[in-house]
Computed example of a mutant assay.
Amino acid sequence: MSTAIGSNSSVIFHFDIKLSDGSAAESTRVHNKPAKLQMGDGSISAAFEAQLTGLKAGDKKTFTLAPQDAYGMPNPDNIYYVDRSKFSADAPAKAGMIIGFTMPDGSEMPGLVREVVGESVTIDFNHPLAGQTLTFSVEIVQVN
């Protein structure tokens, strides 16, 4: 008998995310690397966990989450204005680029260049899917 996902389960699963217009946003199947999740660790929303609870290995489910239950709403505090001189001539900032920035703790954080106006470059560190209503299709691979 296979184990159902509960509040302390460790879950390995594939997922596909679609935007509200039906276009694909993300998928673990592209590189065939399923995601691993520890239920109850706070890494995903309670609403997402509720959708997985009770599923077993081999189960598939599709559900839609509002922005606050998926990647949250964009936070204006995650928008930064950087002087254009911080970018090198061989790697100039252009709107739409995603650039990795080294944080004070040494980790790297991707930022999306929203716009370049004069000497000011607007960098958005919100998750690219923040503020979006998303449809998730999940397939449970393993439950421990």
Rank of each mutant, 00 (worst) to 15 (best):
M39Q: 02
S20Y: 10
I17D: 00
A47I: 03
S23H: 13
F15P: 00
A46P: 03
G58E: 08
T64Q: 05
M39E: 01
T28R: 03
K18F: 14
G42V: 12
S45D: 08
K56T: 15
G54L: 12
D21P: 08
T62Y: 00
S45G: 12
D41R: 01
N32D: 15
A70T: 05
P74F: 04
G72D: 05
F48K: 04
K60L: 06
G72L: 01
S20H: 14
R29V: 13
F48M: 09
M73Y: 13
L52G: 00
F13H: 09
A66R: 12
L19T: 08
A25R: 12
F48Y: 11
S45I: 09
S43I: 00
M73C: 07
K60Q: 11
F48V: 01
A70Y: 01
G54S: 10
E26F: 09
S27G: 07
A24L: 15
D41M: 04
K36W: 07
N32A: 14
A25E: 09
A46E: 10
S27C: 07
G40W: 00
A35G: 09
S43K: 10
M73D: 14
K61T: 02
D69A: 15
T53D: 10
P67N: 08
S20I: 04
K61I: 00
F48N: 01
D41H: 05
V30L: 12
G22W: 10
F63T: 00
T28M: 02
K18P: 05
G58L: 08
K36L: 10
A46S: 11
L19W: 07
H14D: 15
M39L: 02
T53L: 08
A70I: 02
T62I: 01
K18T: 14
I17N: 01
I17L: 12
I44K: 08
S43A: 14
A57N: 11
F13R: 06
P34N: 10
F63P: 00
P34L: 11
G72Q: 05
D59T: 11
T53W: 06
S27E: 04
S23G: 09
L55T: 06
S45R: 10
D21S: 10
D21N: 15
D41G: 07
A57I: 12
F13A: 05
A70V: 07
Q38V: 00
Q51K: 04
L65C: 08
F48R: 02
F15D: 05
K33C: 13
A50T: 08
G42H: 07
A46D: 13
A50V: 05
G22Q: 05
Q68I: 15
I44P: 00
Q68S: 14
S27D: 02
D41Q: 06
A46L: 12
G54D: 13
D41P: 03
K61A: 03
L55F: 04
H31Q: 15
K61G: 01
T62E: 01
S43T: 09
S43W: 08
V30I: 15
A66W: 02
S23E: 12
Q68N: 14
T62S: 03
A47E: 09
D21R: 08
G40F: 00
Q51C: 05
A24K: 07
G22S: 08
S20D: 13
H14L: 09
I44F: 07
T28S: 13
L52E: 01
I17M: 09
